[in-house]
């Protein structure tokens, strides 16, 4: 892992809310190599979502540096391009646009890379097929199950073929079969395209499929371990 190129480097990242009373991230350090599958675990409220949002440049840290694909986000001028092309983010809530169909939702990020309408539609169809939603492109979010919505969100995150996929409990609301299917898909994308995956989860079975498990507590990374040998140990460890 150490000889591979780092795609995410976070050093001493602090993010506080409510005038400093809530420190969602409190000196978080994280390094992710290209093609790696990292699972982030930790109790609710420990800052996992905030971590992903900062890597996706939806917000700026109060201190520390975040370098994605060699670019320091603090100096990045075109954050839109970063959000549209460098990373794909699957939110904890699916965050689909309710008035648009599944296919249209998947097409939304493609406007930013200037694809013509026909190509947008074709690509959305391919992506929906990839997440197992062929034939559901015309359905609106309200006409889909929670799991299906989450898969549409996954297809949208992959719309512009980002190198890094950030997924915030993407399998949380899926039954185990669809959850497995999503993980298989991520596996396949990693193999075929070298996709880097940072995935937040509560599910030990999901975390066990990762190359590495990162445990968070109170806004810090408290433990990092290779998945299989460390899986049992990390549960016992207290920092």
């Amino acid at each position: 892992m150490s000889e591979r190129r780092l795609v995410v480097e976070m050093r001493g990242v602090v993010k506080a809310f409510e005038g400093g009373r809530v420190r969602a991230l409190d000196g978080a350090d994280l390094q992710v190599a290209a093609g790696e599958f990292v699972a982030v675990v930790g109790p609710s409220g420990c800052g996992k979502s905030t971590l992903l949002h900062l890597i996706a440049a939806l917000d700026r840290p109060d201190a520390g540096t975040i370098i994605v694909n060699g670019e320091d986000l603090a100096e990045e001028r075109d954050l839109c391009k970063h959000r549209a092309q460098e990373v794909g983010l699957v939110f904890q809530m699916d965050n689909l646009l309710p008035t648009l169909s599944a296919s249209e939702n998947v097409q939304v990020p493609m406007f930013e890379i200037g694809l013509p309408a026909r190509r947008r539609r074709q690509r959305a169809e391919t992506l929906l097929g990839l997440v197992g939603l062929e034939g559901k492109g015309h359905n609106r979010p309200a006409e889909l199950s929670g799991g299906e919505r989450q898969r549409v969100a996954m297809a949208r995150a992959l719309a512009n073929e980002p190198g890094i996929l950030l997924a915030d409990e993407p399998t949380g609301r899926l039954d185990s079969a669809s959850g497995r299917r999503i993980l298989d898909l991520l596996e396949q994308l990693r193999r075929e395209r070298g996709l880097t995956v940072v995935l937040v989860t509560h599910d030990p079975a999901v975390a066990d499929r990762a190359d590495r498990i990162v445990r968070m507590l109170d806004g810090r990374i408290v433990e990092e371990a290779g998945a299989r040998p460390a899986g049992a140990a990390s549960r016992a460890a207290r920092p």
């Binding site: 939806l58 092309q85 309710p98």
Partner: peptide
């Protein structure tokens, strides 16, 4: 909220 989503998936302020 929807405008937030559009921003999050990379839409520029100009768009």
């Amino acid at each position: 909220r929807e405008i937030g989503i559009l921003r999050a998936v990379g839409w520029s302020g100009r768009r």
